[in-house]
Amino acid sequence: MDAVPTTTPFSLLAERWQPSAAVVKRAAFAALVMSVVIVVTGGAVRLTASGLGCTTWPRCTDESLTPTAEMGFHGVVEFTNRMLTYVLSAAVGWAILAARCHRPRRRGLTKLGWAQFWLVMSNAVLGGITVLTGLNPYTVALHLIAAMALVWVATLMWERSKEGDGPARPLVAEPIKRLSYVLVGVIGLLVAAGTLVTGAGHHPGTPKDNKMVPRIPLDYDRLAQAHADLAFVSIGLAVAVIFVFAAVKAPPAARARSRELLIGLLLQGVIGFVQYFTDVPELLVGLHMLGATLVWIAALRIPLALRTREDTPTPTEAPAARAPQAAAV
C-alpha cells in the first residue's frame, strides 16, 4: 500500500501557488538585500551612540516594549533596528515559501532559506545578549560576524536560485578552485580583523563620556595596522587571481567577479586610510561597513562562478524517458 503524503500548511499553499523561477530569484535577492541592510543599520546604531538606546531586551525598557519619550533619538534608532529584524524575517520567509512552492520543488533552496531563518533568530538573541552585557565588545564583534554568516548563506541562496538542482560540475581544475577558497578565507579574516579594530576603537556604541562600556584591551593602532596588512594581502591575492583566471581561461563570470572584488578592495582601502587619518568620522565608518559587506559578497560569488549546475529531470520526465524500453519488452 502506498504511503499517504503528509499534508502540511506548506503543501497546501504549494497546491494553490506555484511561483515562477523569476519570483524565486527575486525572493532570494530580497533576502540578501535585507541581510545587507541589517548590517548597515546595526552599524548605524553603534555610530549614533544608540547601542543602549533600549536599555534591556526583548523589551525596550523594563516597563515598555517600545521606546519612551524620555529615551529620545537613541531609543528610536535602537528600536527601529530591532523592528527591521521583522522585515528581514519576512523577506527570508518569502524566500522559503517561494522555494518550497516552486514546481519542481527546490529542496536545496528551501534548506538554505531555513538556514537563514535560524541565523536571524540566533543573531536576534545574540543582539539581546549584547545589550544585556552592556555592549561587551566581544559580543558586539560576534554579533557582526553572525550577520556576515547570514550574508554568506543569503548570497549562496541567491546564486543557487539562478542554477539548476543537479550536481555541481567544476569548470576549472581543482587547484584553481582551491585558490578561490583561499581568497574567500583571507577576505573572511580581513572582515574578522575589522571587528577587532571596532572593538578597540573610537565608537563603543554609547556617548563618549560613558566610561562603563568596555573595550578590547589591545592597542588600537597595532590592530589597525594588522587590519591594513591583511588588506594588502587581500589586494595582492585578488590581483594574482585575476592573472591566474586569465591564464587558464576561467569562465567569464569568474573573471568579471574577480575584477569587481579588486575594485571593491581598493575603494575599501581608500576609505579605511582616510577614516584612520581623520579620526574615524561616523559617516566614513558607516560606508566602510557597507563596503566590507559588499566585498564579502563579491568574494563569495567567485567560487560559485567556477562550477555549474544543470536541471535535474522532473518526476514526470523520467517515466517518459523509459517508455520506449517498456514498450519494447
Rank of each mutant, 00 (worst) to 15 (best):
G199H: 06
L150H: 06
S161G: 06
G127S: 09
V24L: 11
M83A: 13
V197A: 12
I176F: 02
F273D: 15
L88E: 13
T155I: 05
V213H: 03
A27Q: 04
L237P: 00
P315T: 04
T6F: 10
N81A: 07
T85Q: 06
F29Y: 11
L32C: 07
W114Y: 14
E70P: 00
A95C: 11
V120F: 02
L119P: 00
G127D: 03
A95G: 05
A115F: 04
H74L: 10
L230Y: 04
A200E: 05
G72W: 09
A228V: 03
H102G: 07
A250N: 12
S180H: 05
A44Q: 06
R322Y: 13
A69H: 07
A91Y: 01
A44K: 07
M121K: 04
A115S: 13
G194N: 03
W17H: 09
T85H: 11
L65Q: 05
T61A: 06
P319I: 03
M212G: 08
A200K: 12
A154K: 01
Q225R: 08
E78F: 02
L189G: 11
R100G: 00
T155Q: 06
L190Q: 14
K211H: 14
A98Y: 00
H227W: 05
R160I: 02
G201D: 03
A327T: 12
M157D: 01
I297C: 11
L171C: 09
A327D: 05
G264L: 10
Y276K: 15
E260T: 14
L190T: 01
A147C: 10
A91M: 09
P303I: 02
S161Y: 01
R255K: 13
L13D: 00
F79S: 05
P104E: 02
E159Y: 06
A146F: 15
P281Q: 11
A246S: 12
R178S: 09
V37R: 02
A323D: 13
A69Q: 12
G75D: 04
R222Y: 15
T293Q: 04
A192V: 10
L135N: 05
S122C: 14
A328G: 02
A115W: 09
A254P: 07
V285F: 04
D219L: 05
